[in-house]
Amino acid sequence: MSKFIKRFYLFLVYGFLYAPIIVLIIFSFNEGRTRGSWDGFSLIWYKKLFSDKEILSAVYHTFLVASITTVVSTIIGVLGAIGISPYRKKLRAAILGINQIPVLNPDIVMAVGLMVLYRILGLDFGLVTLILAHIAFTVPYVVLSVLPKLKQMPSSLPEAAMDLGATPSQTLTKVIIPYIKPGIFSGALMAFTLSIDDFVISFFTTGNGIETVSTLVFSMARRGINPEINALSAIMFIIVLFLLVLMNLRTEKVT
């Protein structure tokens, strides 16, 4: 009996969480315009989606931003993590504390902060500010996913490499990076997912008509319900879900 209650409770929780998404996906295949009634199965909104220039350009920007962000913040994050790992405990704790702030901070604070900063610096809002903002908020996640691997690495490994004649940079590329590779991959994957997923920070730091999928969906939704949004959201959901599953599989394999 109690088992049944537990199951039911779980079902309820997941129901609340996933019902909207399931409804959205189902209605993305609806022939009619409204979410109120089911007018029959159709791929019409997917077709319209793929011929809508505005949407395609947003998808392009989203992936462009995510790709550049992933590459840059992975490099910065990995080097940063390697840089802080040999510090003494106290200093490392302080740096890590600072690193945590963007992670725990509400997105909106980060977003407004970046917006104000760009204003002060007199930057033109657009693709560049957008990418800079995404790099800024994803780097800490990369650092956090690389550090545990670095901590796990015995100090005798890089020392052995140097002992065998490897210069510090050869030690980095031939020993340290291969060792922490799993951490680098999950950090990169996380940066990519977070970048695709982000709305708040993108909304405040983009401009010049550069839209990402999430900011476009937001502005479309304000103009009135457009079933293309359902189709687009469904696709985005599937992509992010896929990335998350990939990420979990990786971490499971690593630990």
């Binding site: 005798s156 052995a160 140097m162 002992d163 004649g165 510090p168 291969p178 060792y179």
Partner: peptide, 20 residues
């Protein structure tokens, strides 16, 4: 002189083989 330029090699206590 840094370690990588010295004509000596070390056998460490343990955990020094490259696992990859």
């Amino acid at each position: 002189v840094p370690a990588y330029l010295r004509p000596v090699n070390t056998l460490f206590q343990k955990y020094s083989l490259f696992p990859h």
